[in-house]
């Protein structure tokens, strides 16, 4: 159920906050590929009120990549033959963990 009608149109952007305090302001629509964030924003909890999602277990370098992926997905979702994203090997494990946490492991759109 999509409730909390007074918050939804509040802003086209949401703020994602990393464990080390970095704030990423991202297009709301782009973040919705993550079921976790989607749930976060649609259920009437604190996050949906403030539009600020804190991730105390994800560091800025990883969250940066995650946000990059959100935008990459948002931009290319309907396009064929899109080049792969560049993933630095040193953060790939952490990135995997973050992806699992954010529910990005399954093909969902």
């Amino acid at each position: 159920m999509t409730t909390n009608g007074d918050e939804a149109p509040a802003s086209k952007y949401v703020t994602l906050i990393s464990a080390d305090g970095f704030e990423f302001v991202v297009l709301r629509e782009a973040t919705l590929i993550s079921p976790t964030i989607k749930g976060m924003l649609r259920s009437p909890f604190a996050e949906s009120k403030t539009g600020r999602c804190e991730f105390p277990e994800i560091n800025a370098d990883v969250l940066d990549k995650v946000v990059e992926y959100f935008l990459y997905w948002h931009k290319n979702v309907d396009k064929p033959n899109v080049p792969d994203m560049d993933i630095p090997p040193e953060i790939c494990l952490q990135l995997l963990q973050a992806a699992d946490f954010l529910g990005l492991d399954k093909q969902s759109s």
Binding site: G39, E54, E57, F101
Partner: peptide, 15 residues
């Protein structure tokens, strides 16, 4: 009374 709760916190707990 859920509006004060953090979704992330609860989600992380179940996680």
């Amino acid at each position: 009374n859920q509006t004060e709760l953090s979704f992330e916190l609860l989600y992380r707990a179940s996680y």
